[in-house]
């Protein structure tokens, strides 16, 4: 009997949503389980690190690693799995771009720990206990700044459709060239159901915050002054957020033609502002109180700005 291909799933600095996404495959997960041998999956199975260390080099067909690299342990595990795998897939926005944990790079490790364990209003920590202090890196990094990555599955989390398509492609050897993102390479607007309601010549007078707006459920959100990042974001998710009357926040990341998602999204929205005088421009921009949080929500750690940032 031919050996089933071996796969591994691992999570680094993540929320667990990517693990859920695998489970969300529903019935299809049984097909996956049939087709492959999962030899490591901390959230679901009892295999230990030592089991992985015992595996021969490149004996795993593919390791799906989600979460960003934020600690020494995560870096070690990423390197370990890389040695043992033929292919490594950065699974989800955190692994691909640093994800929401990447926003920690707007602050410092010291400030974050102080905030979480000392200063926040609900903390009572008279003994100043800091778990994991020695463990955490100074900055958050996407997976490919630590190990070579073969493929990326975008999304926060990736949607079931692209996960199963990716798994099938990898198992049948029909995946695109190495380094590709396994999702369509055009922006979300193409598949958005509200596309036709977007005016041809849209210039933005101001920005509304979604929490303060009652968005029309049938019209293009950007046309309603909500900062929808659909135009800058890779499609493939079926415009789920738009279906929920929420603007796209960019979790699928950029197309292959864009190097820095946040900067590009800013370029598009910025130039589309109607105002020409500096004061009027600033007034319009007051509707975006947190530009970094908006444009780099998932991709701050992957910004070209921090190309050279040292890891420790």
């Amino acid at each position: 009997m031919t050996q089933k291909p071996k796969v591994a799933f691992y999570w680094c600095a993540s929320c667990g949503g990517c693990e859920e996404a695998v489970v969300d495959l529903g019935a299809k997960i049984l097909d996956v389980a049939e087709a492959v041998d999962i030899v490591f999956w901390p959230v679901a199975l009892d295999f230990k690190r030592a089991d992985v260390e015992r595996l021969p080099v490149r004996s795993l067909l593919v390791s799906f690693i989600n979460g960003a690299i934020r600690s020494h342990e995560q870096e070690e595990m990423a390197r370990l799995l890389r040695r043992k795998s033929q292919l490594v897939v950065a699974f989800g926005a955190c692994a691909q771009l640093g994800g929401i944990p990447g926003l920690a790079n707007l602050s410092t490790r010291r400030a974050l720990l102080d905030e979480a364990y000392l200063k926040s209003p609900s903390t009572v920590n008279p003994d100043r206990i800091f778990p994991q202090v020695a463990e955490l890196d100074e900055t958050v990094r996407p997976l490919d700044r630590v190990i070579d990555v073969d493929y990326y599955l975008p999304g926060c989390p990736p949607v079931p459709g692209i996960i199963s398509a990716a798994v099938e492609a990898l198992l049948t050897g029909t995946a695109p060239p190495r380094g590709s993102v396994l999702a369509p390479d055009r922006a979300l607007c193409e598949e958005c159901p509200r596309k036709d309601s977007k005016p041809e010549k849209l210039l933005l007078a101001s920005f509304q915050r979604i929490s303060l707006a009652a968005a029309d459920e049938t019209k293009c959100l950007l046309a309603q002054g909500l900062a929808c990042l659909g135009p800058a974001t890779r499609g493939g998710c079926g415009a789920l957020c738009i279906a929920g009357n929420m603007p796209c926040t960019g979790c699928f990341g950029p197309t292959s033609r864009v190097r820095d998602y946040g900067a590009k999204a800013l370029s598009a929205l910025g130039a589309s502002i109607e105002a020409t005088e500096p004061e009027a421009i600033d007034a319009a921009l007051d509707g975006i109180p947190d530009a970094a949080g908006l444009f780099y929500r998932y991709s701050l750690a992957a910004s070209r700005l921090t190309k050279e940032r040292s890891c420790r």
């Binding site: 900067a263 800013l266 910025g270 130039a271 421009i281 921009l285 970094a292 444009f295 780099y296 701050l300």
Partner: peptide
């Protein structure tokens, strides 16, 4: 140049947050 100006205003705010 107006497009450059608008982008610049927004970019200035953002890079300030990013430590520049």
């Amino acid at each position: 140049n107006y497009k450059a100006l608008r982008r610049f205003h927004l970019l200035k705010r953002m890079v300030k947050q990013m430590g520049i």
